[in-house]
Structure formats: structure tokens, C-alpha cells
């Protein structure tokens, strides 16, 4: 199933909204959207996962790749609005030590 993706870039911050199930079939779509922002060297990318109902390791790998590429130009990629099941995936695999996780996009904008 394909994802619904939209982004808004305002100043130094981009908010990438992803909706749907991020798995090995749909994650290339999310990857393309992140790559687009990375190409523009956006200093802060906030990935809004509020509408993501499921994420597997390929989805996580997509976010990690984005994070690594952002770090290369001293930018940052943070995640926001995680649903409980997605948050569990992050906590279980200790990705909360790697990503800055925010309650929602507004908090992410104000911090980090």
C-alpha cells in the first residue's frame, strides 16, 4: 500500500508528514521524500509519524539513512508524534538513544 506524504519547508525547518504503513514495499517512497530534503540540505527535518500505523525495520533504516545524511552536513533529523506501537519499536530496538523523539511537531519545532 502506498504512503501519503507531504512536506512543508519553512526557513531552516522542514516538516515531512508520512501517513500509512511503512514497510519494505512502501519505504522507498519515504526514502525519496527524505532524499529530496537532504539534497536541499535542509538544516532540520522533522518527520511527523503521527499517521504511521506500522513501521518495520526497512522503515527504520530509511529514517536512519536520513539521519546519517543530515549529520554529514551538520543538519538533524528528528521524529515526532509516534503512535504507541511505533514508539514501542523505537524503544525495544533502543532507537530512542539515536533519534530525538518529540511528542508532536510543535514541540519538535520548539526544541532540538
Amino acid at each position: 500500500m502506498s504512503l501519503k506524504i507531504s512536506n512543508t519547508v519553512k526557513g531552516k525547518t522542514a516538516v515531512l508528514r508520512i501517513a500509512g504503513e511503512v514497510d519494505m514495499f512502501s519505504s522507498p517512497q519515504a526514502r525519496n521524500a527524505i532524499m529530496e530534503l537532504v539534497k536541499q540540505r535542509v538544516p532540520k527535518v522533522i518527520v511527523d509519524l503521527g499517521e504511521v500505523s506500522y513501521m518495520d525495520s526497512s522503515g527504520v533504516a530509511t529514517l536512519i539513512e536520513g539521519l546519517q545524511l543530515c549529520h554529514k552536513y551538520n543538519g538533524n533529523l528528528v521524529v515526532a508524534g509516534l503512535r504507541d506501537n511505533v514508539r514501542e519499536v523505537f524503544e525495544l530496538t533502543r532507537l530512542d538513544k539515536i533519534f530525538q523523539i518529540f511528542q508532536d511537531v510543535e514541540t519538535a519545532k520548539a526544541n532540538g
Binding site: I64, L67, Q68, H71, T93, R94, L95, K97, I98
Partner: peptide
């Protein structure tokens, strides 16, 4: 034990 996945960030 504490620790995060390997291959992402150094100095964890």
C-alpha cells in the same frame, strides 16, 4: 544492558 543498534552513530 544499555546500548543501541550498531552502524548508526559513533560514541554510543
Amino acid at each position: 544492558a544499555s546500548g543501541a543498534p550498531l552502524g548508526v552513530l559513533k560514541s554510543i
